[in-house]
Design a protein around this nucleic acid. Sequence first.
DNA 1: TTTTTGTATAACCATCAAGTGATGGAGGAT
DNA 2: ATCCTCCATCACTTGATGGTTATACAAAAA
Lengths: 147, 147
Amino acid sequence: MTRRGNQLLWDPVVRLAQILTESYIALEGGNVDPKAERLFEKIAERLKSLADPTRLAILHLLQKGEMRVTDILAHMGGSQANISKHLGVLRQAGFVTCRREGVNMYYSVSDSSVFHICRAICDGIERTAEEEREAISHARRVLGEGG
Amino acid sequence: MTRRGNQLLWDPVVRLAQILTESYIALEGGNVDPKAERLFEKIAERLKSLADPTRLAILHLLQKGEMRVTDILAHMGGSQANISKHLGVLRQAGFVTCRREGVNMYYSVSDSSVFHICRAICDGIERTAEEEREAISHARRVLGEGG
DNA sequence: TTTTTGTATAACCATCAAGTGATGGAGGAT
DNA sequence: ATCCTCCATCACTTGATGGTTATACAAAAA
């Protein structure tokens, strides 16, 4: 028995308790329906494909209409390889499609739900910012009264 | 001059061309408005906070109402540290809030836009799946005619 | 056929994020 | 005061991700 911090800890026993608890949960609980779990994985996968500033900027560009890789590159900057990789991610996730015309590849948005999602996220950001602003404003009033 | 693959490549020159092109783009183009860029980063950050199956499952749980960490843990399985970390991510992103009551922490969803987003993503998944099914079905018809 | 142009891919490195065990710390119970 | 429960955080390992250079490949041009 050793005292650490402000606490009596018989480490192996603490660890054993953790393991037992988690085993119990694993047996008894773990109540996530496998179907639902699979769906969550798919959703997460799609969200990950969206969750990158460069890819969001590309989608924003493509919102105006079909574009060649060269033009996307000209607007975005950065290396050709990098842009191409991002386009590949978006393509594989099904957010964009491409067609070939001569040597050029034309990309376009194939799933406009992206923009709904962005709007929803932006709403959330705005709301959060507003709440933060109010909290600060409130705090200032309180401080102002005190000083 | 060396031949690689099926092509004449004077490597340093190719590389130089790439660099010049990209530098030109960096000077002339790179047309992404800094404000917009900042917004894309914020959106991406939020999306990343959502883009994990465990966190989605937690949010799904919390949709039914406030819950203690212990109960979340019982439903989710896994280690306490891991769940706690995920809760921290959701909290910091502003998707959930928590309050203390004695030794227990109660978590609840504070930004229900999450569920709109999930629905939008699910719609996209369904649509993609449907298109894929149709493509396969079509291909089978074509093959069936041929055989 | 050879070369050039436009695009995708491979190999690699640095950074990040998820999971784990151990520990810290708040607060109630004894 | 002591101990236990509930929860957060740290240190660490490992797998994923973004970026880079170099190269492959397809289609038009020469």
